[in-house]
Nucleic acid binder design. Structure first.
Lengths: 144, 144
DNA sequence: TCCCATAAATAGCCTTGGCTATACTATTGG
DNA sequence: CCAATAGTATAGCCAAGGCTATTTATGGGA
């Protein structure tokens, strides 16, 4: 189910749930990044994706293949990568969530650069309920 | 480096850093759980570990093998698993961090059960700086 | 036009962390 | 004291996500 962040009902075991979240994480990051690249450069090339992810070009190619398999992206050989409607929706939500987590951490007193680093790992494990709590804190100007 | 949570200096790329944190996560969880089992039952058996992790018995065996390789645990065939000094130290720190993250989330207004679920994924990605911030929030009784 | 540099794909390998099925110990009950 | 059962280990499989080395396309410049 790539169009939801975390299925908050399914896995009985909290570890199982964390494992599931992890498996969705890469897809989410790729979708977001491809969205960014398209916006910035007009298209997403494998080389750029690889560079931003800090990964080799074949690894990026493989991940794009998985995105395509999951219906999140499309591409033709030696051409740029594009997001499907579903992929775009995912990218949008992931970007918003990322921003919320970063801003929340900053608001709590975490330095900006560290907030950015920590958010990358944290965001994929934040349920909708918790995200809403974070949003409220961020929105609340008299929060501290 | 199993005796530190996150090497906060190394990976230039935030994705690379998140990947590293992930690889440490399982070890951390196993160490903590084995510690719990020893405390509760006097020893940790593979079957109990598997059950709590929501994983098959051979998978648990394999992970225990990895723990042994990393110098965090010891065991003899068909016997219980025990933590080395290093493993015990790790377990202690992981447990404390887990508690901090859960309590922090609760303090922010996240329901207890959801806090517990989310913490499982989040905790492995919280840097020392952020953890300290969380601790302060938890300790601060007039926090909200 | 054609050739070459660059970009992408492919092949092939590794580790981790899952699984099932099967073989082997240990222990406990008759 | 020995057999059945419960608990572990082993074998062998799979997918994901890394990598390097190599092949194949593409597109621009001479």
């Amino acid at each position: 189910m790539p169009d939801t962040f975390l299925d908050e009902t399914k896995p009985a075991n909290r570890f199982a749930r964390a494992r599931e979240a992890q498996s969705a994480a890469l897809l989410e990051d790729y979708a977001e990044m491809i969205g960014d690249l398209i916006e910035e450069l007009g298209e997403a090339r494998v080389a750029d994706i690889a560079k931003r992810m800090g990964v080799s070009q074949p690894t990026a190619t493989k991940s794009v293949a998985r995105l395509k398999r999951e219906g999140l992206a499309t591409s033709r050989p030696y051409r740029g990568i594009f997001l499907t409607e579903e992929g775009t929706a995912l990218a949008t939500r992931v970007r918003a969530r990322h921003r919320t987590v970063v801003e929340f951490l900053i608001k709590m007193g975490v330095p900006k650069d560290i907030a950015e680093l920590d958010a990358e790992g944290i965001e994929h494990h934040v349920s909708q309920v918790t995200l809403t709590v974070f949003e409220k804190v961020v929105a609340d100007d008299k929060g501290d």
